[in-house]
């Protein structure tokens, strides 16, 4: 693998390309943080203007599943970081193994999430005419659950994309000589994966903890 970049591409060296790609990913993540930022504005406002109903909603979420899922995501992100380190030291095999473990944990997260959702559907916690929580705070609780389902859905979509990206990484590793640009890809996907984890670190307290007692 030589250090010269593609002569038709915009870069002089591979190092330059790598640095630029990483910076670009960070910029994209800054953009993503504003995507979730709009959601958090909604929760910030309703959690205060509709505090009682909102808290009633928080009390109905399943803290056990949420907590276990948080542990899973933290672990998954940590293991993927191991993959990034392994790729940096050109241990391709170790990198792929770690990445696949991280993706598997991501799938476990999604499965648990799906189970949680189906439980909530059965308990009539999806907003609508047969909503389970009644009384004066029913409106606020419905607002909470609208937020809950949309936020967890959006997060789950990011998880699915992330899992797909990791799968792509692992497939590319099978090619004869993935080379330096592969290491960069591993790193980029790692940034994304950790970002998804990071979003959950905020979603978890907002959906399960704040206002519970």
């Amino acid at each position: 693998m030589s250090d010269a970049a593609d002569p038709h591409g915009p870069y002089e060296t591979l190092r330059h390309q790598e640095e630029t790609t990483i910076a670009g990913m960070w910029l994209f993540l800054a953009s993503e943080s504003l995507l979730f930022g709009g959601l958090f504005l909604v929760s910030l406002i309703y959690a205060h203007t509709r505090a009682n109903g909102w808290a009633a909603g928080v009390r109905h979420t399943d803290l056990v599943i949420g907590g276990v899922n948080t542990v899973i995501l933290i672990t998954s992100s940590a293991i993927y970081t191991l993959a990034v380190e392994a790729a940096r030291q050109d241990h391709k095999r170790r990198a792929v193994q770690a990445a696949m473990t991280a993706a598997a944990l991501g799938l476990v997260f999604l499965l648990l999430k799906a189970f949680e959702w189906s439980k909530e559907f059965k308990e009539h916690l999806f907003p609508g005419t047969h909503f389970a929580i009644t009384g004066a705070d029913a409106g606020g609780a419905q607002l909470f659950y609208s937020f809950y389902f949309l936020a967890t859905f959006l997060h789950a979509v990011h998880m699915i994309v992330g899992t797909g990206l990791i799968a792509w990484i692992c497939l590319r590793a099978g090619k004869v000589n993935p080379g330096k640009s592969w290491n960069t890809s591993v790193e980029i996907v790692g940034l994304y994966w950790s970002f998804v984890d990071l979003v959950w670190m905020i979603l978890f307290p907002v959906l399960y903890l704040v206002g519970r007692t």
Partner: peptide, 13 residues
């Protein structure tokens, strides 16, 4: 879903 985050009937804004 006809139920959402901006619905004034639920106290939404």
């Amino acid at each position: 879903f006809r139920v959402g985050v901006f619905d004034p009937a639920l106290g939404g804004d």
